[in-house]
């Protein structure tokens, strides 16, 4: 669906994206995980045709360029900045963007109703957007992205500043879209989100894609061992292991185990292992 092949982008002396390659298939959520300034948004902007790569290629459906307006009809984008008109109502925002997508008449009304229903904002559709909570505005931002029923969705940090209730609603929306076979590129700097939602994750830092695999694959390859912190009769011990169950069984048989705590390896460890820094540094 979306393929980036060795794309580079610089702004003056700043190298924003340096040789990134990735591919997203229909029905897949691809997470681009990295700290702020890693180059995630620049990558998304190239994927959607807002920026032209200095080098490398971006293609949609094998051979279409996102620089062409007609190709962009197949792409839905939820930008990181809330791209909504606060003085207009939710319904007016969707109707306006729908017209720009080429929707008209009955089809436009149907899609607007569907999108409002999808993000659970039907009861607030006639209120001005500047009266919405941050979470509601994020959900409307997503509704605009899915309005024309695109095959590819680019969601740039879609949960920034969102309350837990709206965040869960957005997760449900994304999982629903994946179930319908949509390809989704999801950028975030929250590893929990990537771990929960993404089929594949690319770890990005300083413009480079450092690793790309499934969540489990990344943890296995770069996350290091799980840690058991066990309280024994003789005192507390820390045991690093690839098989915590077997290790705990062994301690239990020895009759020395009073209680224990397990620290599983995660994407934070993966990032630490790859960059030497914490993800939120």
């Amino acid at each position: 669906m979306l393929k980036l092949d060795n794309v580079h982008k610089s702004f003056g002396k700043l190298v924003a994206v340096n040789g990134v390659s990735l591919e997203i298939k229909p029905g897949e959520v691809f997470g681009l995980l990295g700290p702020n300034g890693a180059g995630k948004t620049t990558t998304v902007n190239m994927a959607v045709g807002l920026l032209e790569p200095d080098q490398g290629t971006v293609s949609i459906n094998s051979n279409l360029s996102p620089l062409e307006p007609a190709t962009r009809r197949k792409i839905g984008v939820a930008p990181q900045a809330l791209a909504l008109y606060g003085e207009l109502t939710g319904h007016e925002n969707l109707t306006f963007y729908g017209k720009l997508q080429g929707l008209t008449g009955k089809k436009l009304n149907e899609r607007v109703d569907w999108a409002l229903d999808f993000v659970q904002l039907k009861d607030r559709q006639k209120d001005r957007v500047d009266t919405y909570s941050g979470g509601m505005q994020r959900r409307l931002n997503l509704a605009v992205a899915v309005l024309q029923d695109p095959q590819l969705l680019l969601l740039d940090e879609p949960t920034v500043g969102v309350d837990p209730q709206s965040r869960n609603a957005i997760f449900d929306n994304i999982e629903s879209l994946r179930g319908k076979g949509r390809a989704i590129l999801y950028t975030t700097h929250y590893m929990e989100e990537a771990q929960r939602l993404c089929d594949h994750v690319g770890i990005m830092d300083q413009g480079k894609l450092l690793a790309l695999d499934t969540v489990d694959g990344l943890i296995t390859s770069y996350g290091g061992k799980d840690i058991i912190i066990a309280e024994l009769e003789s005192g507390e011990v820390k045991i690093e292991t690839n098989d915590p169950v077997a290790e705990l069984e062994k301690l239990q048989k020895q009759g020395k185990l009073l209680r224990f705590r397990l620290e599983r390896s995660n994407l934070e460890n993966v990032f630490l292992s790859l960059t030497g820094r914490q993800l939120r540094d």
């Binding site: 807002l50 307006p69 007609a70 009809r73 792409i75 930008p79 791209a83 963007y97 997508q101």
Partner: peptide
Amino acid sequence: VRLRVMPI
């Protein structure tokens, strides 16, 4: 940004 990612 959103206007520019529209097919216009």
